[in-house]
Amino acid sequence: MFEQLVDGILWDIALVIFFVGILWRIIDVLRRGTRRDLSVPRNSGVPGAIMANIRGFFPRREIAPRVRMKVIAGYMFHLGLLILLFFAAPHVKFIAEHITGFSWAAMPYWAFIVTAQVAFAGLILLWIHRLLHPVTRLISRRDDHVGAILVFLVMLTGCMALAEISSELRVFHRFTVELLMIYFPFSALMHAIMFVPSRAYSGATFGRRGVNL
């Protein structure tokens, strides 16, 4: 019963909400337009937009020592999760069967496990940091915690289902994934997509004003 629900209708609903929600959020942002900048542009906005996108991947030198842990753990988690999502053998099989129709080379099992360990370490460190650091604790909203816990649950249920021997565990993993997909468009998790236009927007604004990024 639960299995049919998760594999069938709930998956379809989650898929629709995920993509429609993302589209709606993007359209919403575009519809708001940009604020008119009446000043004479000192530079084109394009290089600024590109620079800001690249620059955002590295911490500023002045604060680098202080954010080192956050940067390292952040890369561990984000890269790990990205690789897991697209190159873990069960995921490749699932995506090929249910979404794309074609598949690509998957990671060997040991690389899968090591990547998961790196991603887990990063996520746990970041979440503990969020809870312990006085400033991040202050500026964290419920949304941030729910996002972190949901992603952790998705990864944990995935880890529990690693042996691929029982449908219960697989369904449990898929269920948490569907919850995450439904939650995704309406939360800060949208940064997974929005970080590019957001950096580009502020980069272009600064670029036009002649700020050296």
Partner: peptide, 9 residues
């Protein structure tokens, strides 16, 4: 007998 003890049944 792969690494990380995925032996199978």
């Amino acid at each position: 007998d792969a690494a990380f003890a995925s032996r199978g049944k």
